[in-house]
Structures are given as structure tokens and as C-alpha cells.
Amino acid sequence: MSAFTEFDQERREINELLEQGYRIVNIEEDLDGARVKFMRSGPVAAVQVLQLLTADARKHVTTVLPGIQRTPEEAVESSV
């Protein structure tokens, strides 16, 4: 599988969760990549976890954090 295909698969999984109303609440990075926790609030809170392996997906997941579509400086400030 090409690197892009691997990344695209992980990106789709991230985007699907976001489209379903999940938001990223926690990112833990270690030797095996990034473990990203998604949470959807509601009567019963739902949690999903993705283990991201590709570098591009680990980059992508931070570009979809709230506020990142503004300038990085603004995004950093807004997330404080």
C-alpha cells in the first residue's frame, strides 16, 4: 500500500468521527504513534479512540483541532 493510501485511510477515519459530532479531547504520542481520543457528548457520552500510525495523519489531526483553521498563533491562544 502506498504511503498516501495509508494516510488517506487514517484521515478518513478522523474526518468521519468529526462529521458524526465527535471532538478530539486528548492526544497521547509515544513510540507507536498517536493515540487520539474522541468524545461525543449527549445523554450517554460516547468515546472513540484512533491509533494513528502515519506521519501525515498525526499532522492532520492537529490541523483539525478547534481554531487551527485560523492562524496558528490565534489557535494556540484560543485553546489556552
Binding site: 478530539i24 486528548n26 492526544i27 481520543k37 492537529t62 483541532l65 489557535a75 485553546s79 489556552v80
Partner: peptide, 9 residues
């Protein structure tokens, strides 16, 4: 950004 996110969590 990740640090801030995890701190909030």
C-alpha cells in the same frame, strides 16, 4: 496545541 488540549482534558 496538543499540550493545551491534554491539559484541558
Amino acid at each position: 496545541l496538543i499540550g493545551n488540549l491534554n491539559h484541558t482534558y
